[in-house]
Write a protein that binds this DNA or RNA. Sequence first.
DNA 1: AACCTGACGGACA
DNA 2: CTGTCCGCCAGGT
Length: 111
Amino acid sequence: MVTAFQQRVYDAISTIPRGKVSTYGLVAGHLGCNCAQAVGQALRRNPYAPRVPCHRVIASDRTLGGFSGKRSGPQLRRKRRLLVKEGVVFRPDGRVDPACVHRFSRRPRDP
DNA sequence: AACCTGACGGACA
DNA sequence: CTGTCCGCCAGGT
């Protein structure tokens, strides 16, 4: 079942353009709460993948975070490959270039 | 309703 | 730099 909260998460990340990424924390802030962990949980259960681009959400330190329910392993390489293909730049240390982090313009919650 | 579990994040040793 | 600890909050049991 898709809850209202999950729907809001999916809506939010669907606005992240190709070649850009966001973080669990930024998405949470965009939704108006300090619930990065809950955002992660929503993405983990994303039933709309890959229509909803959950691979464009990474951790706040700009490491990859998780994908397909896993935080390491071959799934993560796939996530990375997808992002590279979309134009996201990775630094030598494996983190995403800060310039590729998307900035949400408006908040749907109390502007 | 109580309790447990995270694709988290920031603070601190 | 790495490893712990703790607050966070939605969702499942």
